[in-house]
Design a protein around this nucleic acid. Structure first.
Length: 223
DNA sequence: TGCCAGGCCGGGT
DNA sequence: ACCCGGCATGGC
């Protein structure tokens, strides 16, 4: 499958997505943690509330008790876990470069990625979302929609007769990320837009229970 | 009503 | 190295 053709078709149909829906690196990190296995709608409520209450910087969030923070982010679900995870991630950025995100992202990207992955609460998708959308670093983000797209279009990661559900298994994140990174130009803007388009596609036509349908802009790739 | 959402962790095999 | 239960709210 020609992934650039897929990209072009999605872009034709949906247009530019202007991702990540945030206007600072801090806000990207915040959203990346809160959105884990949660609808963005639930996350947006938390972000709005934190902004209204002026708890909208690493310093501000780290200055309030964890249990208070947890209540502020209740609507994002898993809020006890996420309060702790958020503190851990923001603490990392604070001590890594004094809260200077730009300086932090100017370090060695692979090292940075490993350090993010070492934090509790940061798995591969969250790490890559932060690296790509907060740091403008070329890491392709793989999410549930991306996996579902590959699965439903019978895309195989290699030629060695993988089972069809290879792409659905979370342990194979890295293989899928590299699959994309090897096949499309290493371009931050392209990675940015492509993932955003997959999410838009997913929300409209590729939810877990929705079948491939005639409305889907990728119907031409069906077999 | 029950299932789903832009995952990840930790304990048990 | 996998597998799997737990985490939790809001929308449809």
């Amino acid at each position: 499958m020609d992934l650039l053709k897929v990209y072009n078709r999605l872009y034709e149909d949906f247009g530019p997505q202007h991702w990540w829906p945030a206007d600072s690196a801090f806000e990207v990190v915040l959203g990346a943690v809160l959105v884990q296995n949660t609808s963005w709608n639930n996350v947006q409520k938390c972000i709005d509330q934190l902004r209204d209450e002026k708890i909208f910087s690493p310093e501000a969030i780290l200055s309030i008790p964890e249990n208070v923070l947890a209540e502020k982010i209740r609507s994002s679900g898993y809020y006890h876990q996420k309060a702790r995870r958020l503190r851990d991630v923001l603490s990392y950025f604070q001590q890594s470069a004094g809260g200077d995100f730009a300086r932090c992202f100017s370090r060695n990207p692979e090292t940075l990625r490993q350090e993010l992955l070492a934090l509790r609460g940061v798995g591969p998708e969250t790490a890559d979302s932060i690296l790509l959308y907060a740091g403008n670093l070329p890491f392709f983000v793989v999410d549930a929609y991306t996996r579902r797209f590959l699965y439903r279009h019978h895309v195989r990661i290699d030629s060695k007769g993988q089972p069809d559900d290879f792409v659905l298994q979370s342990k194979n994140y890295e293989r899928i990320r590299l699959f994309f990174e090897r096949r499309i130009p290493r371009d931050v803007s392209l990675y940015n837009e492509f993932h955003a388009l997959f999410v838009e596609l997913g929300k409209k036509y590729c939810r877990k229970t929705s079948p491939l349908c005639d409305q889907c802009p990728l119907r031409c790739f069906n077999h």
